[in-house]
Write a protein that binds this DNA or RNA. Structure first.
Length: 878
RNA sequence: GGGCGCGUAGCUCAGGGGGAGAGCGCCACAUUGACACUGUGGAGGUCAUAGGUUCGAUACCUAUCGUGCCCACCA
């Protein structure tokens, strides 16, 4: 057999150093363009659209848990021969980016307005040039291999054109309208927010009870509020129509304190009778529920808080211009003075916060653009119910469904400049013209309104509007490209559950509307990452872990492996425990040392990595192949079902505790096949592990007999080429359990591993040279063959495994007695089971026979233990 | 108010209707030959509690307790 003489163990570094290997290997992959793919209709597609990270983004642990599976699956399917590609990109992150740039400008004493739109946008673009690519570099450090040549940006020309086209088409379909509605206003970023961008936080606050007196002074009604400053904008008091306490007051009027306005008492079902006093002040311009009540009762809507967060001119003079929280203090103080404040009690309440700026969101009335969602949602809902889009784990489908069922119109306009400007122009009398280009708008204006005097809407679209098109816009839509043809829909979308309403819902809706298809078949929801105490990782808590720190400590592979190891789909949280990364780092070292061992063999490794004829295999060879076969099957299945934690578990167990601890030990006695088997098993195991740990597997694979340039494109191991011999598994496993008994025997008696234990074996084993050799070398024993083998209770002695099981050794009499007692208990338990007539009658036949086998094997062991005890007694007597 | 996850060894977690598992930590032993980034052995658990289903429950069902998350217009 030809060998590879060049790479001896001494040529390999003694230790595996991830930091050196990873940078070099990543550069190698990029150089040979291994992540790039073109559509190939002859092969099945496998495509993942990378959820575009914000250009302001930095790597965080969440990327580890959601992006590693994308890289893993792309690598897995590529090896399986799919036309696999992972398409990366970035999101312009309108509000987040604008906030960062505006802060920068403020430090220079500049503002958006002082620069003007054009120069401002240039500024943002250059900011993007400078900082936008950081996360791409960080992704490379984690070993992520998307097709960088296909990287897209939501503000690209192509993607922007798609956005404009979609807006215009929705408008022409009557699904986009302009209207004055209550919106979520962020006073810091000076823009609206969609419902999904508002996060509630439970905070301690107060409930102020106010007394409004009737216009004739005949009665007073008490209302409760958590936001007293809004009382300046009250235009009614509402009670429940069935509330006996107030029914007679409905239709009467009270006088609003501090303001003096005369407001009606109305009856509305939205009022909870049990809460507070059962009467609620109604501020239709600053509260969602109140707004709905206002619409139902035709109440005036007074905007008392402005876009700047200050009180407007609609309020009495003393409060005008006051900042909203200062106004609250002033109003409370004045109500108290006026005797309208009944009492103040502590109260915990939900405060709506902007997920962008963190400030308290102000609901207020504003003229905005909205997308009608009901009709669009219906087809998405239908697609889900037809099973065209499937959630993993399944239960997240309900979140999706629930959101679609209760969907409200989507406020798509934002008062910021960085983003896709609305393709909307207005005539001098404020008639909107929606068109894809300015020329078209001018033409339409001339034709329909007889004017060419147009002013463009300065607003931009919600960031999620462009990301909602992502899975098809990055493939070239609206053009019918080969990419769109073969790679759409994607196979799987992977994201966290917090993004379902923000993004998944919109992708499905817009995908259905504009491509007629779901954008992806599976939605994999990965667990959120928590710390060991079960707290959500966040910057403010200071408990977040920077993946770059983990990479520095353990290497990228170990970071990935550690995270994947802890991922269990059914759980919705992943309590991150760094010990798994440390274990993974030691695992990589173990693998590296196994490689060094293979290279240390005097005969060298076979050049081609081909296996010798099966009949030349040793028992250990056949055993490790069978184990490898099982491992390959389980790992493949685990990846297919997104069970990454299971795959990692199985691989660690096989490579470390099966291959290294047992198989390699058997090869320390030279066999003709060992070099070929070692390199074949290592090569195969590296391919199985590669999707999780790309770097170390490449490095090891390159040092083995192999075919091909890189493990990235190596074929996925095929079960057909790995022999499966079930008898070898039984025989070798029996050997293992004997050796473990021998080790325990020594440890129990405080003997050193050098101590040669004499064991008794049936004479029939004497001719089984292979087994006795393994036994003496691994177990470090001498064997005394008995001429009269110990049979089981029915007198049977048969087969190799059975022979091994009849081995007995001199054991500590006390331990033997203990074991005998245990066996008596087990046997008694099983006998009781069999004594129960219901067991035989009702239990499944295979269960009964399994239990029977168990009973027999316990009885056999008891026979052996008793025989050993007898041998001891005889020896003592002599 | 609805919906959902999780309570198994000191810690982080697998498992799963029929003999309680892993890693880390702990204890003991070993050590030049791939590997101290190691190997071997051990101690440690009424599988949250109470009922029910079943021949049999740690596992399935119900309730309770604890804990965490999501949704919702109790101001």
């Amino acid at each position: 057999m030809s060998t590879v003489p060049t790479q001896s163990a001494s040529n390999l570094p003694k230790a595996y150093d991830p930091s050196a290997v990873e940078a070099r290997r990543y550069a190698f992959w990029e150089d040979i363009g291994v992540f790039h793919a073109d559509p190939d209709p002859t092969r099945p597609p496998f495509v993942i659209s990378m959820p575009p990270p914000n250009i302001t983004g930095r790597l965080h642990i969440g990327h580890g848990s959601t992006f590693t599976p994308m890289d893993l699956l792309t690598r897995f399917y590529r090896m399986r021969g799919h036309n696999a590609v992972w398409i990366p990109g970035q999101d312009h992150a309108a509000i987040a980016t604008e906030m960062v740039v505006l802060r920068e400008l403020a430090r220079e004493g500049l503002s958006r307005e002082s620069l003007g739109r054009e120069r401002y946008l240039e500024r943002v673009w250059s900011w993007r040039e400078e900082y936008g690519g950081i996360i791409d570099q960080q992704f490379r450090k984690l070993g992520f291999g998307p097709d960088w040549q296909r990287e897209r940006f939501t503000m690209d020309e192509g993607l922007s054109a798609a956005v404009i086209k979609v807006f215009v088409e929705l408008y022409r379909a009557g699904l986009m309208y302009r209207g004055t509605r209550l919106v979520n206003w962020d006073v810091v970023s000076q823009s609206t927010l969609s419902d999904a961008e508002v996060e509630d936080e439970i905070r301690a606050g107060f409930l102020w009870h106010l007394r409004y007196i009737s216009e004739d002074g005949s009665f007073a009604i008490e209302v409760a509020t958590t936001r007293p400053e809004t009382m300046l904008g009250d235009t009614a008091v509402a009670v429940h129509p069935d509330d006996e306490r107030y029914r007679h007051l409905v239709g009467r009027f009270v006088i609003l304190p501090l303001v003096g306005r005369r407001i009606p008492i109305v009856a509305d079902e939205a009022v909870e009778r049990e809460f507070g006093t059962g009467a609620v002040k109604v501020t239709p311009a600053h509260d969602q529920t109140d707004n709905e009540i206002g619409l139902r009762h035709n109440l005036p809507m007074l905007s008392v808080i402005g876009f700047d967060g200050r009180m407007t001119d609609e309020v009495p003079e003393p409060y005008r211009g006051l900042e909203r929280f200062a106004a609250r203090d002033a109003v409370v103080r004045d109500l108290e003075v006026a005797g309208a404040l009944v009492r103040t009690e502590p109260h915990t309440l939900r405060v709506p916060l902007s997920s962008r700026s963190g400030t308290i969101v102000e609901p207020l009335l504003s003229l905005q653009w909205f997308c009608k969602m009901k009709l669009l949602a219906a087809s998405a809902l239908q697609a889900f119910r037809d099973g065209r889009v499937r959630f993993v784990p399944e239960r997240f489908g309900r979140t999706f469904e629930q959101w679609l069922e209760n969907i409200r119109d989507w406020n798509v306009s934002r008062q910021i400049w960085w983003g896709h400007q609305l393709p909307v122009w207005y005539t001098p009398d404020d008639q909107p013209i929606v068109a894809e280009t300015e020329e078209e708008a001018l033409r339409l204006a001339r034709e329909q309104h007889g004017t060419t005097e147009l002013r463009r809407d300065p607003d931009t679209l919600d960031t999620w509007f462009s990301s909602g098109l992502w899975p098809f816009s990055i493939l070239g839509w609206p053009a019918q490209t080969p990419e769109l043809e073969h790679w759409y829909p994607n196979q799987v979308m992977i994201t966290g559950r917090d993004i379902i309403p923000l993004w998944v819902v919109r992708m499905v809706i817009l995908g259905m509307k504009f491509t007629g298809e779901v954008p992806f078949h599976d939605v994999l929801i990965t667990p959120l990452v928590f710390d060991a105490q079960g707290r959500k990782m966040s910057k403010s808590l200071g408990n977040s872990i920077d993946p770059l720190d983990l990479i520095a400590k353990y290497g990228a592979d170990a970071t990935r492996f550690g995270i994947m190891r802890q991922m269990r789909l059914e759980s919705q949280e992943l309590r991150f425990d760094e010990r798994f990364c440390d274990e993974a780092r030691r695992f990589n070292t173990k693998i590296w040392n196994a490689l060094r061992y293979a290279h240390s063999l005097s005969e060298g490794l076979p050049r081609d990595g081909k296996l010798p004829a099966r009949k030349t295999f040793s028992l250990a060879d056949r055993w490790i192949f069978a184990r490898l076969h099982q491992t390959t099957a389980r790992v493949t299945e685990a990846y297919e079902h997104y069970e990454f934690g299971v795959a990692a578990d199985v691989l660690l167990d096989f490579i470390w505790y099966t291959f290294c601890d047992w198989y390699i030990e058997t090869t320390k006695i030279a066999t003709p096949t060992r070099a070929a088997v070692l390199s074949f098993v290592l090569n195969t195991a590296m391919r199985l592990l590669h999707p999780i740990s790309p770097f170390v597997t490449e490095e090891v694979w390159q040092a083995l007999p192999k075919i091909g340039e890189t493990i990235v494109t190596a074929p996925w191991p095929s079960l057909d080429e790995i022999p499966l011999d079930p008898q070898a598994v039984l025989d070798f496993d029996a050997l293992i359990s004997v050796i473990e008994r021998i080790r325990r025997y020594r440890a129990d008696r405080g003997l050193t591993p050098h101590y040669k234990v004499e064991i008794l074996a049936p004479a029939a084993l004497q001719t089984d040279i292979e087994m006795t050799t393994l036994l003496t070398s691994l177990g470090h024993v001498t064997i005394k063959f008995l001429t009269n083998p110990i049979a089981n209770e029915s007198g049977e002695v048969a087969g190799r495994t059975a022979l091994l099981q009849t081995l007995s050794i001199y054991e500590d009499p006390e331990l033997l007695r203990k074991r005998l007692a245990e066996l008596d208990d087990e046997i008694a338990r099983l006998e009781r089971k069999f004594a129960n007539p219901n067991f035989a009658a009702k239990a499944a036949p295979e269960v009964v026979s399994k239990e029977r086998e168990k009973l027999v094997s316990f009885e056999d062991e008891r026979t052996r233990v008793r025989a050993t005890m007898k041998v001891q007694e005889d020896a003592t007597e002599k």
